[in-house]
Every structure is written in C-alpha cells, then in structure tokens.
Design a protein around this nucleic acid. Structure first.
Length: 576
RNA sequence: GCAUCGAUGGUCUAGAGGUAUGACUUAGGCCUUCCAAGCCUAUAGCCCGGGUUCGAUUCCCGGUCGAUGCACCA
C-alpha cells in the first residue's frame, strides 16, 4: 500500500466519479446533509442491508415491518421527542452567536439549567455572559430548536406530523399487533430498515452526519426477568472481542478483551441479550468488510446514556478521517417506550405471562347490595360502588370517600366474601433490547476501508477491496478480442451467470488491462476472460481482483464457482 | 449559525477584464493473443444570483456547496 495523503478525499472522489455517492440535486446546488446513492452505491447499500437481513430476519427470526416515515404528533409526544428532542438555544444580542442556552446558564453557575422551562431559563440568563463574546446577555429569548422535521398532514394544516427521527417508534406503536402476530409469547422481535430524519443544525462530514439517513433497527421484546437467558447465547458465549467499558474510559485505560460469557458474568455488559447482540454486531460488521482492528465496542458513560437506558454500547468504526465513528448503538431501553405509548394511547402494552401452576391467592370481595344502595344514595351509588371495592370494612361497616365526603356504609348494605382464587398469570411490560444500525455510516466505512492503491507493472492501481458479498458488480466477463466468436461466447457466459442471479457485467471496450483496471476501481472481485484456448477446450481464465492471479476453469462450472465465491462459501486461492 | 479559505469539461489542472490550456477518462474507428500500450476522430467546462463595465468565468456583494476553526452532535 502506498502512502495515502487523504483517504477520505480519494475515496469520495472515486465514489462520485464511479457512481457510488453523489451530492443530491447537484444541478441546483447540493443541500448539506443529503446525498444520493448512485447506481453502484445503491447496489452496495442494498447488499449490506441484505446481509443485515440475513442476520436479523432469517437467522434471528425477527420479521421486518415497514411503517410510514411520517407519524402524527401523539407518537412523538409519547416518545418524548416533541419535548425532549430539542436543544434550548438563545442568540447573543451582541455578537449574534447562537448558543446552547443551558450551557450558557451552567457556565454562569446556574444549576439544573437543563431542566428549566424556557421562561425560567431566559430570566436566569440575564446575568450570564455570552460564551463567545463574553458580554453580559441581558434580555434574551430562549427557544427550542427541535431536531425533528415538522409537517402538516392533509390540507389546511389541521394535523401536525413529524418525519420520524428513528424507525424504532413504529415498532413500539405496533406492539399490540406484533404481539398477536407472534402468538402472545415472549421473546419476539420486529425490525425495520428505512429512512429517518433529523434536522441537524450543521451537518458536516459527508456521509457521516446526514439529515436523511437509513437506519436498520431491531426491537427485541423480552421478559424483564429473562434478560439473562438468551436462547442462543451459546452461539456467542466464547466469542471474544475488545470492550471499552465506561470505567476504563474514566481511568484512561485500554479496552479489555473478554468473551461474552465473561462480560456478562463480570457485570461488564448488563445482560445476555445485550451481549448477544454486541457479539452479533461484531460478526456482522466483519462480514461486510470492516477490519476487526478498526472496530471497537464502547460503553456509554453514565451521563451520556439516554434516561431510559440501563446500559448502552456503541460499535465504533475507526475512520482515517473522522476517528472513531459511532455506527451501531446497542441499548437496553427497558420498558420506557412501551409504558410511554401505553399511557399516551390508552392501549395496554403488556404480555400475559401464564404461571406454570395457577397460584392460589386469597382475595376479599365486597359485594354491595345495589338495590338498597341505589335507592338510598341515588346519584352517588355508582361512585360508592367503585370505592367499596377497595374499602377496608370492619364489622361496623365501611367508610368510603366520594367527592371529598366520607360516607359511612352500614354492614348490612354489603357482603364480604373471603375466597381463594386461581391467579393464572400476570401482565408484564416487556423490556426492549435495541440494536440500531446506521447504514450510511456502515457504507462509508466499507468504502473507506476498501480503498487501496497498489502498484501493478510500475503503475498505480486503484482498487476497492470489497468483500465479494458487498461488491456491487460481482463478476466481469471479457472477450480477449472482439472477433472470432470470442465476444459471442463471452456474452453467453454473461447470460448464464445472470440466470444464476449474479450481477455480471460484460465489457469488450479497450485493451484487456484497461478493462481489469476499470473493474478493480469499482471493486468487482472476479473477472472472466474468454481467449483462444476457450475455443479449444471450453475453459476460461478466472482472475482474482486482490491477487491478480488467474486460474483456468471450465465454462460449465462457472455459475457454481462464481456463486460460491460471491457468497463466501469458497475462496479464490482454494480453486484448483 | 459565525469566522477564514476555496469552487474551471466526468476527473486533475493552466489561465487572463474580450468565451479558455493540457493530461487522464468516456464514445466511435484502426491496431492489439491477458493487466490503464499506440494512432485517428468525437463529446464535454468557467457553482448560482445581483452589481460595476461596452463587455465579468475573472473585480465587488449576496447565496449554495466543500474544507478548517468555534458552536452543535437525541
């Protein structure tokens, strides 16, 4: 590998030129925070998404759902995004600088600034100094800058909607339907791959911070008492990886390498479920082509965690340009979201868990004599009935409070029955384990890590060393010459590979070396060349992108061999 | 959002107050028996808006995008 002055610039230039990533609506001037995926980029992204599906949908059995990107206001009121997904800001009247109002206040020695209302904060700020120009602010208005895109649903702006800032809420609000779909049993999961939107104040860093981005999220609903019993934990129990705990971060120490079993037993990761998906994430990211040495798992610091999460780990990928980039978030969201939506919507979001054996529980029932009670208390009878159910009667009767008034109900107006009832189970609110992947950041990391320059025949060769599983074009087919039927044979081979579902690209333009270089630059892992020997013995050369080595294989074996090479079940160097 | 710098074919680049240089790429052709060879031909460009000027891609102002610093990053 030769020295790379700036991989980011090289890779983004290539990405633009060869159709991976483009600035959006470029002819009108691009818009920061939005990108277009070009033909190769869209294909690569889809392949990454499909690897993600292999892991979560096929292997874990968590079906994918698809919710709208716009949801009504109530959804985000419940989730806390309307109130909380905003920064309190103010503008310095002297230097016009926009400031985080709570930061200014804390800088001025005011406590609990982050929990104050706008008006309180505004008053408190009057004596604080601007963080930029250090003038005393005086009268300033504090306003919330909500990071959600707001819109209206239907004509006349009657109904407020927001573009979703995460796909997760769709899975939460569909909880009751999902629970029925999974036949009322825990654990189960739902996943979603789709666009989310955040109106970032100042997006920079190309594909890393977008205003519209693709998330792949899984919401796994588990019994709170079963979080240490993942049914397939054995799969990753001995899977080892470096973990950077918050304690180590606070002490400036390096990550420790632990197996998932050790991590859970030592309390480093909160539970088996979280550890399982930490390990699964590590495996998946390596499959798409992330080098393990450029991958780490970092635990959120206690003050960094969202208020609902008990433990949270980020998979971070090291970028030449941006340093460690948070790419996947793995959180134990507890029952926060389901409780919030149950409360806001009035729909129960619980699972009925049957006990192994019904429990015999003594229960006291109070049965009022309504015919007397109704006549005697008339319009208060109904309220009295309700209150009696929870009353504690004595042999002299019971006292109930209705509208602030204590009413004595004599013992002959109700009957007390002590009985033993069977309790067959209980309603519990599941906890949610959430692995949340930033697909665009994964795409960028794949691009950056695939980019390489080497020297072939004294000339610089630019090559994208994609894993065959994510490479947009999977195989190229060339006739050595465009004559003597070599091109016809090459076209037939192309068709036979396409029938196998492979993206095979035929190219007969220019010298053979140029065609290899073209494919190297877009990361096509394999190239087939039809030459004059082909006409003698029905074999072709199969060339490996990374080693530039070639082997001869029979035409009839091509679909099977290429198929196996592309899905990773065979590797090139083992072929004959 | 503020400050500084930048923007010329697809890419990299030269350049001047009078419509633009070269290379690579791409396309067509010739040639060519495995790694960007050679020859011929062709396509293609001054970020957007306003101002100054007879004339602006060039100077000035504003915007957009990008880079850097500040701020921000559920």
């Amino acid at each position: 590998m030769i020295f790379m002055s700036d991989v980011f610039e090289n890779v983004m230039e290539l990405a633009k030129r060869r159709g991976f990533v483009w600035p959006t609506s470029e002819c009108y001037g691009a818009v920061a925070g939005f990108i277009d995926y070009g033909p190769l980029g869209a294909m690569m992204k889809r392949r990454i998404e499909n690897i993600w599906r292999d892991f979560y949908v096929i292997r874990e059995g968590y079906y994918e759902i698809e919710c709208p990107t716009i949801a009504q206001e109530a959804v985000f009121v419940a989730s806390g995004h309307v109130a909380g997904f905003a920064d309190k800001m103010c503008q310095c009247p002297h230097c016009n600088e926009f400031l985080r109002a709570d930061h200014v206040a804390e800088g001025g020695g005011i406590e609990n600034a982050s929990t104050m209302k706008n008006e309180e904060l505004s008053a408190a700020l009057a004596t604080c100094k601007c963080l930029a120009c250090e003038e005393v602010l005086g009268t300033v208005e504090v306003f919330g800058f909500n990071l959600m895109f707001k819109t209206s649903i239907g004509p006349g702006s009657q109904r407020v909607g927001y573009l979703r800032p995460e796909t997760a809420q769709g899975m939460f609000v569909d909880f009751a339907r999902l629970l029925r779909f999974y036949r009322d049993k825990l654990p189960f999961g739902a996943v979603q791959i789709g666009k989310s939107y955040r109106n970032e104040i100042s997006p920079r860093q190309g594909m890393i911070r977008l205003r519209e981005f693709t998330q792949a999220e899984a919401e796994i609903f588990v019994h709170p008492a079963e979080k240490n019993r993942h049914p397939f934990f054995g799969r990753y129990a001995s899977y080892r990886m470096p973990l950077l705990t918050y304690v180590q971060q606070q002490n400036g120490q390096d990550a420790v390498t632990l197996s998932m079993r050790e991590a859970v037993d030592q309390g480093v990761i909160a539970n088996e479920y979280l550890a399982y998906y930490v390990a699964l994430t590590h495996e998946m990211l390596t499959v798409i082509g992330i080098k393990p040495e450029r991958l780490r798992f970092r635990q959120h610091l206690p003050d960094e965690r969202a208020h609902y999460a008990t433990d949270c780990w980020d998979a971070e990928i090291h970028s030449e340009r941006f340093g460690w980039v948070e790419t996947v978030g793995l959180a134990d969201r507890t029952d926060y979201d389901l409780r919030a939506h149950a409360k806001e919507s009035g729909t129960p979001m619980t699972v009925f868990i049957q006990y192994d054996e019904p429990r015999k529980v003594p229960r006291r029932r109070i049965i009022p004599n309504m015919s007397v009670l109704g006549k005697q208390y008339r319009n208060k009878a109904k309220a009295i009935f309700t209150e009696l159910e929870s009353a504690i009667p004595t042999k002299d009767g019971a006292d109930v409070v209705v509208d602030g008034e204590t009413i004595h109900i004599p013992p002959d107006l109700f009957e007390v029955r002590d009985e033993i009832v069977d309790i067959r189970g209980e309603d519990i609110v599941p906890h949610v384990i959430e692995p949340s992947y930033g697909i665009d950041r994964m795409c960028y990391a794949v691009l950056e890590q695939a980019y390489d320059e080497d020297v072939a025949d004294g000339e610089k060769r630019v090559v994208m060393r994609f894993s065959p599983q994510v490479a947009p074009v999977q195989v190229a087919v060339f006739p050595l010459m465009t004559r003597d039927d070599l091109d016809t044979i090459a076209r037939e081979i192309t068709t036979s590979l396409q029938k196998k579902g492979l993206l095979a690209e035929y190219d007969d333009s220019g010298a053979i070396g140029r065609r290899y270089r073209r494919q190297d630059e877009i990361g096509t892992p394999f190239a087939i060349t039809v030459d004059y020997d082909t006409k003698e013995n029905n074999t072709v050369t199969l060339r490996d992108r990374d080693s530039m080595k070639q082997v001869r294989v029979a035409i009839k074996d091509l679909p099977e061999i290429i198929g196996a090479l592309v899905d990773g079940t065979r590797v090139f160097l083992e072929i004959k």
